[in-house]
Amino acid sequence: MATDGKPDGGFESPYALVQSLESSLISLDSIAVKSILRQCCNKLSPYDCVENLILPALEDIGKRWESGELSLSQVYISGKISEREIKELFGDDGQVERNGPHMAITVLEDHHTLGKKMVLSILRAGGFNVIDYGHGVTAEELIYMVARDKIEIMLISTLMLPAALRIKNAVEGIKKVSPNTKVLVGGAPFRFDKELWKKVGADGYARSASETLQLVKGIVEGASP
């Protein structure tokens, strides 16, 4: 797919397509989303469709939420519509398989799952296999599962401050049993205290689901953290 803004195989320019998809997603117009994706993705490989059209739209939606322009519900519904459409278009479990790392996600000692759901949606849309460890998991349970499943990237979401602080115990335990595992954190407490992710010993912090995708891609491509 062309990325220079010129027409590509009879389509609108890629930029215009991404804009058009993004606009349909944030207005929760799933009929328009379906139409755009069918028009383009039938002529593209699943990888190109996801990588050059769907993910850029979702990433921009994430950025616009971070800046306060869009709302959480728009991020959530956009991810949900995208996940559903990818499944319909490409069949199976709808995933564009990558040779990704062993990766898992959980909500530590907390029962607020919306953040986890949004991160799962965008990572799965992006072709990553992610094991869902669920919510209300304790640090001890998490350490055991990380070692058992040989997890390379562990994503931890929290909403409440006490749970965020408890990540420190989880990170210490994970690093003992699996020193090379990268622990990435996200959730409200980290947005309100920008140094908190370092204090709990995490390897990285993402402000949104789309930023999580960027962090994960960075790790896969060999960049820090």
Partner: peptide, 12 residues
Amino acid sequence: VIFIDDGPPNCG
């Protein structure tokens, strides 16, 4: 309600 020692309880 799920109580914890150092914060407000969560809803079950």
